[in-house]
């Protein structure tokens, strides 16, 4: 069997190689999932505040009006929406939809764009811009 001799060591131009877009979506899927997991107890706490009584509901409203809390919630909204969109993309890939390279790259781009767009809409809605 003829052996292909590859030149070693191989020097990579680190300024020119980068993770392809689908890889980027994939690692962000993991990062967003980890973030949602870590803040799960806090989200349940918010859920509890919102439902226990009319008084805690009011407390919930003033609590989430704090700028820092808002910022964390926007971050979590992005994490959720990215995880949601990327997850649907993965489910489609599982059933062999869009597995060709151009389609896979396009859907990765769409996931990044749609989740960011939806996060902006959620944030604006939360800030009562509309």
């Amino acid at each position: 069997m003829p052996e292909i001799i590859k030149p070693r060591p191989k020097f990579l131009t680190l300024s020119q190689i980068h993770l392809p877009l689908p890889g980027f979506v994939s690692i962000l899927h993991r990062v967003s999932g980890a973030g949602l997991f870590l803040l799960l107890p806090w989200l349940i706490y918010l859920f509890q505040l919102s439902l226990t009584s009319p008084e805690t509901f009011e407390h919930f409203k003033t609590y989430v009006a704090h700028p820092l809390v808002k910022l964390i919630l926007f971050g979590l909204s992005w994490a959720f929406l990215h995880h949601f969109c990327a997850g649907i993309r993965f489910l489609l890939l599982d059933i062999q939809v869009g597995i060709e390279k151009p389609q896979a790259r396009a859907s990765a781009r769409a996931v990044l764009a749609i989740s960011l767009g939806l996060t902006v809409i959620v944030a604006l809605k939360f800030l009562e811009v509309f």
Partner: peptide, 17 residues
Amino acid sequence: LGLVGCAGWAVQILWRL
């Protein structure tokens, strides 16, 4: 342990309604 605890906590909030 964390997740089982969280599940119990969330269910408790729901079932008190």
